[in-house]
């Protein structure tokens, strides 16, 4: 028996919004410690890694490890039927071929149940090596989304350049060039407004606008985003998911011919 109950069901709705444009289907690996999902996008350019710890759920039971292959378009349709303040429970029998979503209104007066067929997905799990990153940049997630959106007008790539002074995002194309510099902030009233750069060595890497913009669909999950970069390795874009876990996107850099 697997059962995971989340009073803050809106988090699960936001997680779905954060992955559904990138992935058509994915396996949810449910274990005693929580739920893990790892999947590449169709073009194998990026990797999504989702971690939801059991401690973050209001009730969590997983008697045996189960892998639930889900069509994310279908799952998204179902989660759209949940209100933002609904309590969401996911449950499945051991070796079942369906998963059930239960949505309870806060006053328990409305209870909806949706059963979805599971899929057999033959997905390779990739090993993500432990990496010491040269630059770790924390910035407001809304600011990052805005920068990615604004620079997308100029070209297909965004250059992210991190030095001890701060971080620079730039793009170039037919209409001209764009440069946005963010300096490390001094003291801020709210921690989530801070721009913090932890740099060992300066790094400049180029990434696809299209993918960065898809990652920013996770913006509603967290007021801050963390970018980790080292030369010639994938960028990590991480959003915390409340107290429950995180979503990380890995994106291979673009390289000059």
């Amino acid at each position: 028996m697997f059962e995971a109950r989340l009073v803050q069901g809106s988090l699960l709705k936001k997680v779905m919004e954060a992955i559904k444009d990138l992935l058509n289907e994915a396996s949810f690996d449910c274990a005693h410690s929580g739920i893990l999902l790892q999947a590449m996008d169709n073009s194998h350019v990026s990797l999504v890694s989702l971690n939801l710890r059991k401690e973050g759920f209001d009730k969590y039971r997983c008697d045996r490890n189960i892998v639930m292959g889900m069509n994310l378009t279908s799952m998204s349709k179902i989660l759209k039927c949940a209100s933002n303040d609904d309590i969401i429970t996911m449950k499945a029998q051991d070796s079942a071929d369906t998963v059930t979503f239960v949505f309870e209104s806060p006053n328990q007066e409305k209870v909806s149940e949706y059963e979805m067929k599971l899929m057999n997905l033959d997905q390779d799990q990739l090993g993500i090596p432990e990496t010491e990153y040269c630059c770790i940049i924390k910035l407001p997630s809304g600011e990052f989304a805005r920068i990615c959106r604004d620079l997308s007008q100029f070209g297909e790539s965004i250059v992210i350049s991190c030095t001890k002074e701060g971080v620079k995002f730039s793009a170039a194309g037919d209409i001209g060039t764009a440069n946005i510099k963010l300096a490390q902030t001094g003291t801020v009233d709210k921690e989530e407004d801070a721009v913090i750069v932890d740099m060992q060595e300066p790094v400049t890497l180029t990434f696809s606008c299209k993918y960065l913009n898809m990652f920013t669909k996770a913006t509603p999950l967290s007021p801050q985003v963390c970018l980790s970069m080292s030369p010639d390795v994938p960028l990590v874009v991480e959003y915390k998911i409340g107290e429950i876990g995180h979503i990380r996107y890995y994106l291979a850099p673009r390289i000059g011919d």
Binding site: S46, A252, I255
Partner: peptide, 14 residues
């Protein structure tokens, strides 16, 4: 001209 590397050239199947 930039080319895009696949994520699988960095991360290998377990």
């Amino acid at each position: 001209i930039m080319s895009q590397k696949s994520i699988t050239s960095f991360f290998k199947p377990n």
